[in-house]
Amino acid sequence: MALDKATVARIATLARIKVPEADRDALGHELNNILHWVEQLDEVDTADVPPMASVVHLTQPLRDDVVTDGARADDVLKNAPGAAHGFFTVPKVIE
C-alpha cells in the first residue's frame, strides 16, 4: 500500500496538520518507508490470537458516580490563547 500525494493530503487533513503541497511527495516517501517496514508483520499468523486489550491483568475499577472536582473555570482558562467572558474563544464558525 503506497501513500500517494492525495492520500498524504487526506491524512494530513484528518490529523489537522497543514502540509504544503510541495512537501507532500517527500513526506509520502518517508511514511512509505515506515509502512513498508511494518508490513513484515504480515508474515505472522494471527488467525486465533486476540488483540491485546490490557497489558496488565487487572480489572478496571468502577468509580462512584459523584462530582469530585469542578468550579475551576479560571484555572481552566488560565492557559488559553484566547478567552472571554469565561469561555474559550475560537474563529467564527457560524456564517
Binding site: 511494518v38 508483520l41 504480515d42 505472522v44 494471527t46 490470537v49 486476540p50 488483540p51 491485546m52 497489558v55
Partner: peptide, 11 residues
C-alpha cells in the same frame, strides 16, 4: 489490530 494481536504474542 494486526499489531495488537502480535503484541499479545510478544506478551
Amino acid at each position: 489490530l494486526k499489531a495488537q494481536r502480535i503484541r499479545t504474542l510478544i506478551a
